[in-house]
Simulated assay, not measured.
Amino acid sequence: MGALLSVGMALPASAASASPEPISSAQRLLALQGLMAVLDSRSGSVPNSVTGWYVDPASNSVVVLATDDAAARTFAAGQRHVRIEHVDARPRLLADLRGGDTITTSVGGRCSVGFNAISGHTRYIITAGHCTKLGGTWSGPGGTAIGPVAKTTFPGHDFGLVEVTSAAWEQTHDVDSDHGYLNVAGDAPAAVGDQVCLSGSTSGYHCGKVVAVGETVNYGDGDVVNGLTRTDMCAEAGDSGGSIMSGSQAQGTLSGGSGGCLLGGQTYFQPIQQVLSTYGLTLITGAASQDQR
């Protein structure tokens, strides 16, 4: 029978002279992955102050990130090869702001995102002025607050800004379409006869042509707006402020129209250049990324 070995007993000469088997990096990684699985199994009871954990082969440990080190030690209790790393803030879920998205105000009203822009370090979405004139705090899809109205120009022109004060929102250079996202690359204006497309939160994405530019429109009750561009596209209530695009070029935000998408109609949009120059804004633009559809 073979010799039984236990701590405190003398080893046979042959065993004493043998070198212990080295632990391979693959074995270490497997052990750490096992520890990771144990911590994953505790996800249902993890406190908010523990912000994450991951395998770090370089230190032969599983790193637990936390804003409260004591809470991290309790979470990982009973496990070896755990390293606590203090972080200053918890991660948060982020959502993207895109042209054509639904926005609603706390005082009642629904419109659409036009474009994202910045002035210095302040973030804004551009929409219709008759929308921001309603006031209140505006929220995006899902009801997450975006921020308050910052500026309104209506009547005379029809544009306004909502300040993006919530850290939950990421600005993009995207506009919703029926074939994924359009990339906003610039703001070169379209001419009469050129194709333009609307992205609105009610009627969705569809296209038409520019019919006239520099038109003054009387919406009634003293609401006269000048400098608008007329198109043969239709729109519906809630599309106001939505993005007007021509290819990859931002054209403006939907102001109003007549008729509807069931029987056909026409629309007017506020050219984007007037908004940018009036408020000193920089339009957020960029190249299309590989994950854009």
Rank of each mutant, 00 (worst) to 15 (best):
S17W: 00
D101P: 01
D96S: 11
E21V: 15
V7M: 07
E163H: 02
G238A: 14
T67P: 06
G44P: 04
S119R: 14
G200K: 02
C131D: 08
D158G: 12
G186M: 05
T231W: 05
Q274V: 15
D101C: 00
S25E: 15
G227P: 04
A89D: 09
A150R: 10
H86F: 06
G100Q: 02
G247V: 07
A72S: 10
V275K: 08
V46Q: 12
L94E: 11
G265V: 09
R92V: 14
T102D: 02
T202R: 10
A3S: 11
G34H: 08
A72I: 05
V213K: 15
T104Q: 08
A191E: 14
S139V: 08
E163N: 03
G242E: 07
I103N: 01
S17D: 07
C234D: 09
V87M: 03
W169F: 05
D88Q: 11
L5W: 03
L32E: 03
L97E: 02
G114W: 04
A18Y: 03
M233R: 11
Q27N: 11
C111I: 07
S203W: 01
A190F: 08
L39Q: 04
A15I: 15
L281I: 04
A72E: 03
S59G: 15
G2L: 11
D291K: 04
G186N: 13
S19W: 02
Y54Q: 14
V46C: 10
E236Q: 14
A58R: 13
P148G: 09
R230Q: 15
L93V: 13
D223W: 08
A167S: 13
V213T: 15
G109H: 08
H86Q: 12
